[in-house]
Amino acid sequence: MHLAYPAVLSVLLFCTGLYGVLARRNAILVLMSVELMLNAVNLNLVAFDVWLRDALHSGQALTLFTIAIAAAEIGIGLSIVLMVYRNRGSSDVDRLRDTAEGPDDDSSDDPDAAAPAQRTQKAEATA
């Protein structure tokens, strides 16, 4: 089999996953897209392992490890998404804007008044 086929399929899957990560609003959909990316990588690893006829089969071993890590990651990721949903009422990625800076966040007129305001904002973020 021409090596190009699995390689190109892997690339296209990866870029599809990339699009999903950047374009989807719901955090769980983002996680799905991340899974797509990981699987694309797995396909690449297996294809090259078979092509190279590796004695150690490192490609396949790494694929297994990737699968396991992906499983662990999805578990943790989902629990985080659930926590966020519980605290903020939605799991939309673009609602999570605590690190944002507004245009007038650091006014030069009254630094004493601005500093406590920023401190309370940070307190809310870490709660």
Binding site: L22, A23, R24, R25, N26, L29
Partner: peptide, 9 residues
């Protein structure tokens, strides 16, 4: 379901 980042993505 899609955020405003679609074109860039």
């Amino acid at each position: 379901a899609d955020s405003g980042n679609r074109p860039v993505a």
